[in-house]
Design a binder for these strands. Structure first.
Lengths: 216, 216
DNA sequence: GTCTATATTCTGATAGAC
DNA sequence: GTCTATCAGAATATAGAC
């Protein structure tokens, strides 16, 4: 029976370092919400601690300082972001590729709105903590995808639109439903964005982007 | 000669209250940049004072407190915003209306990027200081424009796309070039967004939105 | 690992001389 | 109207008992 006392009821059997992981995760979640809402400077350790329901000093036990905590939150967010990036696969037909990508991006806005907002806040502030990330994989990824679009244009599979602007339109439109939720709710006079709202939005975006780019 | 000493070289002849106006304007400009970059909580009176090159106490002479200053900045921003709202006029042809509106919105992103970012930050934070504004004119404006779109759909002038999503796509895409500038610069590997960048982006957006909505 | 108490710096705001 | 000096409270961060 003794070892049962050390098991986590919620998260399965005991492993060395599990308490550490759990506490870290709890703080990270609270921090993500706080940073997404108030930005790096506007967020306070006090509020994060209250939200995570741990004493303020515990945060400093798990993370070196405020910047370290923010870095950890940002890293989590960027990992999620990368996963969506790679959803823009190079299948044969542009229609399939873009449809799937728009659906994936919109799904991300629905399931990870806080991550989307955190990223947006960081960008609007001039991306002071993202330079390393943006310089690496991101540039390469973008260049590669742009050349795929250009080959489609060359093959007459889509209109001669600048590929970068198409990507920006997709990013902007899909992220909008996470980042500008209050504006959308009031405009459409609905209390919350349902799963159906997102599906409907994705359908409209797909229709406009595909037809607008001359993809059949 | 004496009265020349009281004239402002930059802003024309002396008027009662001119010093007051000038100082207020100076502080407001610095505050807008600071709030747009760090949000309400993240901005500090100290930094605003330094940026405006006035002693911190002077800000409290012109504005009741931090919230009052933020309110004044936000009011300026919303007035600019309203002007663009009304650019979506109800001419006869959808193509003209949407073209002009996209151009106007994109021009706003180019000439008032800080205002755009301030508004975006406020939205991402849940629009805590905008509820009054969003409840009034905004709802009415949106409803009216939606009915125009619906009449176009009924007349077969455009595809049966949900009007709200079209508007959101236009807002999202145009604001993106102000709010997400760092991402765009790094992706396109250019040092700054030129006037030509904005024109090119507007052209792509117009092409995709108009064709995508079936507007000839 | 957890938490109370506290050191230290910073922030918003004010008083009062000029 | 302007500015220096300063307050009270809040912020990050640490010390040290348990």
């Amino acid at each position: 029976m003794a070892h049962l006392m050390t098991e986590s009821i919620l998260r399965g059997p005991y492993k060395p370092g599990r308490i550490r992981e759990q506490s870290r995760e709890l703080i990270l979640q609270a921090a993500e919400a706080e940073f997404a809402c108030h930005g790096f400077r506007g967020a306070t350790m006090q509020r994060i601690a209250e939200s995570a329901q741990v004493p303020k000093a515990n945060i400093h036990y798990y993370f070196s300082n405020k910047l370290g905590l923010y870095g950890a939150v940002l890293e989590n967010t960027l990992n999620l972001w990368d996963a969506i990036f790679n959803e823009l696969a190079s299948h044969d037909e542009p229609a399939d590729v873009l449809s799937c990508y728009i659906d994936a991006k919109m799904d991300f806005s629905r399931t990870h709105p806080t991550a989307s907002r955190l990223f947006a806040k960081e960008m609007i502030s001039g991306a002071p903590h993202l330079s390393a990330y943006l310089q690496q994989d991101y540039r390469l990824w973008f260049k590669q995808r742009m050349s795929i679009f250009e080959s489609w244009v060359a093959q007459g599979k889509m209109d001669d639109v600048e590929p970068a602007h198409v990507i920006f339109m997709i990013w902007a439109s899909t992220q909008y439903y996470a980042d500008f939720e209050p504006q959308i709710l009031i405009a459409t006079q609905t209390p919350t964005l349902t799963e159906q709202s997102f599906t409907s939005a994705a359908d409209s975006i797909k229709h406009i982007i595909l037809k607008g780019c001359g993809i059949c």
